[in-house]
């Protein structure tokens, strides 16, 4: 009876991992943009990035998710009414991925900002002296050198992000927490299924740890250890 529901839970896990990886992608992109904005000379960019990271980190993820999913739906359609669009249905997958990506972009901003600050100024200047464009300097020098310093924070953010995906069950996405509720309801064994889900989250954490250690090795190439 319990085993019959295992495929359902594993299907949910697939979705959980999907949501987590896609939102990580968004978070990293936003994080790099945010960090560059915070360190830029433009006062407007610095202020915008500052408001972004303060606001997002000050409001609970669950509240942000409901604002974006339920509120975003209404807002989009109110705007749509003005322009005469047809009714737009914001699907929970997109809303979930965007929200989580948006939230963790703020945390990544801080992580990457610290990382970029740790890159010796001379290395970046050397890049410019060789005639590299700002983009080349970032891709070839700043980013690889920054990642070594940003990696511990990045790893933490990823682990928290993976756990935050559990919230998408609240906006109706069929992730593993949602499916565990379904399975637990029909078998009347909710504890069993939530325990399975908890174990699967631990599995995700453990696998991530191995991956992060490998990344750390890659980005620490050439660093001498005392």
């Amino acid at each position: 009876m319990v085993w019959d529901y295992l495929p359902l839970i594993l299907k949910g896990m697939l979705l959980t991992v999907e949501v987590a990886l896609l939102s990580l992608l968004i978070a990293v992109a936003l994080g790099i943009l945010g960090a560059l904005a915070k360190l830029s000379r433009s006062r407007v960019a610095r202020a915008a990035a500052g408001v972004y990271s303060t606001l997002i980190r000050g409001i609970p993820d669950l509240v942000l998710m409901t604002v974006i999913f339920f509120g975003g739906q209404v807002l989009v359609n109110r705007i749509g009414e003005l322009f005469g669009w047809e009714y737009i249905d914001v699907n929970p997958f997109t809303a979930g991925v965007l929200t989580i990506g948006f939230i963790f972009g703020a945390y990544m901003t801080e992580t990457f900002r610290g990382g970029i600050l740790a890159v010796p100024r001379g290395e970046i200047e050397a890049g410019f002296a060789f005639g590299m464009t700002p983009l080349q300097v970032f891709v070839r020098i700043t980013f690889p050198a920054m990642m070594r310093h940003a990696l511990p924070g990045f790893g933490n953010n990823w682990l928290v992000l993976a756990k935050t995906t559990a919230l998408v069950s609240v906006i109706g996405l069929h992730d593993m927490v949602y499916n565990a509720a379904v399975a637990g309801g029909s078998t009347r064994q909710p504890f069993t299924f939530y325990l399975v889900v908890a174990a699967l989250f631990l599995l995700i954490t453990a696998v991530s740890d191995v991956g992060l250690r490998r990344l750390n090795k890659t980005f620490s190439a050439g660093v001498r250890r005392a």
């Binding site: 682990l159 559990a166 919230l167 637990g184 009347r188 889900v197 908890a198 631990l202 954490t205």
Partner: peptide, 23 residues
């Protein structure tokens, strides 16, 4: 520490609120 830090708070709450009644 490992178990509580490695799993979502939401799942922990569900385990206690919905889960314990199973027994």
């Amino acid at each position: 520490i490992y178990c509580f830090r490695g799993t979502p708070l939401l799942v922990q709450i569900y385990l206690i609120y919905y889960g314990l009644g199973q027994f």
